[in-house]
């Protein structure tokens, strides 16, 4: 197995403690499979025991490990170090979330922006016509969105905007609960809603779980147009 020495420039400090922020360097040997999250784990164990960053699942399911890697929003656990350009690797907290210190952020504003009573389960699209156990009414699965906030960080819209993740969730709710159509479309059509979207498509590019938020925003726009046409 080949290993390579890589240098990480990590933004330390910040957050409620008011500690001044500064980049610090950490170098370590990594093999070709190592992810940015693996590197952070080893840096914490060997060099910086008080380094703050968020992580849980290590496989792109929890959505906690979003951060800015060389200027781009990424999940640390799915970003292979080898795939990053040669030279220093710059790590900063994710944009759009409240910093807690070092690379850790609080997802409170994103989590609060999701439609309040939206469910997290949907029908599985896999093997739709398959036979099922008697007790299973429909095969189900979790929603694609892992609430990582990468799309919110990547979105170039500067005005007050609910943002791609939230609007995508609204469209999912519309699909699952058509009886709430009026209320959902009202939320989507607000001044901070779908019409703020500039179709930059950055959200769909960065989303690690193929939610394609931009597509959901377009669908909501179409639904809103139908409504105004019907009036």
């Amino acid at each position: 197995m080949s290993t390579q020495e890589r240098n990480f420039r990590i933004l330390r400090g910040g957050g409620p403690s008011g500690t001044p922020v500064e980049f610090k360097n950490y170098s370590l040997e990594l093999n070709e499979h190592a992810t940015v999250l693996d590197a952070l784990e080893w840096i914490r164990v060997e060099q910086a025991p008080d380094l703050m960053y968020r992580h849980s699942c290590h496989h792109g399911s929890c959505g906690t490990c979003g951060m800015t890697v060389n200027g781009k929003p990424k999940l640390a656990c799915l970003t292979k170090v080898e795939d990053l350009a040669a030279g220093d690797i710059k790590l900063e907290p994710l944009v759009g979330m409240e910093p807690l210190g070092d690379l850790a952020v609080s997802p409170v504003s994103l989590m609060s922006a999701y439609p309040a009573d939206s469910g997290y389960i949907r029908e599985s699209e896999v093997n739709k016509d398959a036979a099922r156990p008697e007790a299973v009414e429909r095969f189900e699965r979790f929603e694609n969105c892992i609430e990582c906030g990468l799309c919110m960080a990547a979105c170039p819209v500067e005005d007050e905007f609910q943002g791609p993740a939230v609007l995508a969730a609204l469209n999912r709710e519309l699909a699952k609960t058509p009886e709430r159509r009026a209320e959902i479309l009202h939320a989507a059509g607000r001044p901070d809603g779908v019409y703020r979207c500039e179709r930059a498509l950055e959200c769909s590019r960065v989303c690690p779980t193929a939610v394609y938020p931009a597509k959901h925003i377009m669908e909501l726009r179409k639904e809103l147009e139908k409504e105004s046409g019907a009036e």
């Binding site: 960053y53 968020r54 992580h55 849980s56 290590h58 496989h59 929890c62 906690t64």
Partner: peptide, 14 residues
Amino acid sequence: RGELTSGTTGRHHG
């Protein structure tokens, strides 16, 4: 010491 469920719990196969 870190984020919630950052030890063993979150890495469960589920």
